[in-house]
């Protein structure tokens, strides 16, 4: 069942050591590896007083998104992350457990939409912003949300998929819900225009492709690959992307 045809107008991704499309192509070809202690560079346009509030994951989101933005132009945004910054919440719980007071700054930025909020302030982006925690459903719900916006009034939507490895405290096995690297993938999509034309449809296949952090890297590989279609599903719904 076809849900929507759309155009990928621009994309950009960041992971430690991967700063541009050429880096990702090298990574895909097996010639470049992740540099674990690398920190994402962010635009000078982001006010210094806001930059100090950005966690490594927020920096990854800003870095990837920045290359998909048109200067001075607001765009509706859909952010999607399975775990968000749950590691920060865990640190705060440990602080409370130890009987210490928690940092008001850390507390104010511990919600799932904290990065989206900082993004809208930093870029003075005044249009709609949605943040999705897709649970088992992987990356598809973010696309569905974006198509909703495109079918209403938006000409373009910025879709940002991101996740970082979760703390050892949380049980991972037997679920396929953790990626080994932090990664942010930004996609600027529209219903028409120049770019890579894609079709998004629902599939009846039963699949087990892992959760959001794993699917986001699979989707990134699909963008770099010659393959013309990608199916992703996890315990129930399956979805398919075709290059058309």
């Amino acid at each position: 069942m076809i849900v929507s045809d759309f155009v990928l107008r621009e994309w950009s991704a960041w992971a430690p050591g991967m700063n541009c499309k050429a880096d990702w192509k090298e990574w895909y070809a097996g010639r470049r590896t992740i540099q674990h202690d690398d920190k994402a560079i962010i635009s000078d346009a982001v006010p210094k007083m806001l930059q100090r509030r950005l966690s490594p994951l927020a920096r990854a989101v800003f870095n990837a998104s920045d290359k998909c933005l048109e200067p001075g132009k607001s765009i509706p945004t859909v952010f999607s992350s399975a775990h968000g910054e749950v590691c920060k919440s865990l640190e705060m719980l440990k602080t409370i457990q130890a009987g210490d007071e928690i940092s008001p700054t850390a507390f104010s930025l511990s919600v799932h939409n904290a990065i989206a909020g900082l993004f809208s302030i930093a870029y003075a982006n005044s249009l709609e912003s949605t943040v999705i925690a897709p649970g088992l459903e992987g990356i598809a719900p973010a696309f569905i949300e974006a198509f909703g916006l495109l079918s209403e009034t938006a000409n373009e939507v910025l879709l940002v998929l991101y996740d970082e490895p979760i703390a050892d405290f949380y049980p991972i096995s037997p679920f396929n819900l953790n990626a080994e690297i932090p990664c942010a993938l930004a996609l600027r999509i529209a219903l028409s225009g120049n770019g890579l034309p894609l079709r998004f449809s629902r599939s009846l296949e039963s699949r087990d492709d892992g959760e959001h952090p794993v699917q986001l890297l699979t989707f990134l590989r699909f963008l770099l690959a010659e393959e013309s279609s990608l199916s992703l599903g996890n315990q129930g719904h399956s979805w398919r992307w075709d290059k058309i």
């Binding site: 007083m49 007071e101 940092s103 008001p104 700054t105 104010s108």
Partner: peptide, 16 residues
């Protein structure tokens, strides 16, 4: 250029 969150954070640091 500090903001209200900074005021709370600073209040906590001074208390500590």
């Amino acid at each position: 250029g500090l903001d209200s969150i900074d005021a709370l954070e600073l209040g906590l640091a001074i208390r500590k």
